[in-house]
Computed example of a mutant assay.
Amino acid sequence: MGASVTISDLPIRKRLHNQKPYTAPQLTAPVRLNVNESPFPPSQKLIDDISSSVRSALDSLHRYPDREAFALRSELAHYVTAQSGVDVGLENILAANGSLESLQQIMQVFGGPDRSALSFAPSYAMYKIIATTAETEWLDGGRRTDLTLDIDHAVAVISAVRPDIIFLTNPHNPSGQTLATADLERILEAAPAVVVVDEAYSEFSLSPSAINLIDRFPAKLIITRTMSKALAFAGGRLGYVVAAPAVIAAMRLVRLPYHLSTVTQAAALAALRHADDTLSQVSELIRERTRVAVILRDMGFEVIDSDANFFLFGRFADTARSWQHYLDHGVLIRDLGIPHYLRVTVGQVAENNRFLEVSEKLSALATGGTDRGCFHDRTRASSVPIAHTQ
């Protein structure tokens, strides 16, 4: 019904013309290592707690949820305080349906027509999408060929274009590299307005959180976080902002009423009660991250050091065909369009072993001369330096 109408026939805003939605392949594969999820399913104790909590919440399902999510924000504040070592209160937290809703709210408050947003690509694709849909000019400061951020260059760009919003991921997505605190301070000092530090993968890094800098830059620094990664709650869709109370108050101006359902709040509270058990799996993922990277390098691949639960590896003469090789062998990873590199999420031991088996086959194809121009070629390994985390 209505199939004859296309999007070009609709009176959409000009800024949306030729815009493409965010996409990530949702394919069936025995081993899925493409979207940086936790590979560990919830424990039976957590399942039972969520089930019991949601069941209790159903008694009030005919009523609107707690509009301010007081209990949830309070528990998130306790969690952040324990994780960062910084005393964080309920007034410093705003919860949302995933960190993407938080990012959209930030753009609604600080972006818009006649304003600009800056990031340093390659970076998370949703920053540009959210900026564009909010009628905000999108600016790209770029990165070095090894994907590290040239701080002197970044500060110069910020000073020249004076953006209203700056987006940073720390650890960086897609490379997993960590920005040193001193470098982040330089960016905050140069920024004329708001700096958003996306800490979706912070629990996988030993580097201090940017939360330590909020008191120094209360009007500039906004930190977004998520329960999707280390807390293994991707299906629950819960993100949150950590910032000065004035920033939280500003974001409440655009927050929709009752945006977090009673069920979401109950499930997230249960997940936080089991945070210590869930986070115990992070150390295993870090060990696996190191093991897999070492073996890949022994095979002749380049691996960019990462502080997250994923890493980029290469170099490939043809990333698309190399990605297809993995999929043909039952392993789904990610082609982000970065020349010569693919990204893989760290999985459980058996999943990682299968990924390594397929990688070894790919390496053998390259070194054996079979379809050499399409697959990994170790003769090119020295052409781009390996990036190191700080």
Rank of each mutant, 00 (worst) to 15 (best):
A24V: 15
G330T: 07
D307S: 10
A82R: 15
L365H: 05
T6Q: 13
I286R: 14
H274I: 10
I211E: 03
E135V: 04
A190M: 04
E68Y: 14
R216C: 03
I386L: 09
T370C: 03
D215Y: 07
A366P: 01
L221P: 01
L336P: 02
D371I: 05
Q177L: 15
Y240E: 06
N97A: 04
V195D: 00
I223S: 02
K14W: 11
R15V: 15
A271K: 04
A267N: 06
S306L: 10
A160L: 12
F110N: 00
F311W: 04
V349D: 14
A121E: 15
A24E: 08
Q19Y: 08
K45L: 07
T264A: 12
T389A: 09
A249F: 00
P257C: 05
S280K: 09
A71N: 14
S4N: 06
Q19V: 14
E137A: 15
T278H: 03
R237D: 03
A308E: 00
V35N: 08
I286N: 07
H17I: 15
S363F: 08
P208W: 10
T345H: 02
A125M: 10
I295R: 07
Y22C: 06
T278E: 04
L238T: 11
S51V: 09
E199S: 09
I214K: 02
E185A: 12
V331H: 06
V294S: 14
D66I: 08
P163I: 03
H78S: 13
T136K: 02
E203G: 07
V247L: 07
A270Y: 01
L168A: 01
N92A: 03
R252A: 10
T345E: 05
S102K: 02
M126H: 11
A200Q: 05
F70A: 10
M251K: 03
S43W: 03
S53N: 12
G369S: 07
P21I: 06
R315I: 11
G300D: 04
P122S: 07
A3W: 12
L118P: 00
R273C: 11
P122H: 04
N34C: 14
A3S: 15
A24L: 13
V344L: 07
P42I: 10
Q19S: 11
V292N: 00
D276R: 08
L147T: 02
M1K: 10
I223G: 00
S382G: 14
L213I: 04
D150C: 10
I7S: 14
K361V: 05
G347Y: 05
N352A: 11
S382L: 13
P39T: 08
N170Q: 05
L256M: 10
E185D: 13
D164N: 14
S228Q: 06
R378L: 14
S306M: 05
S8E: 11
V5H: 10
T133P: 01
N309Y: 03
T132A: 08
E135P: 00
Q108I: 02
D307C: 08
V195N: 01
Y258V: 04
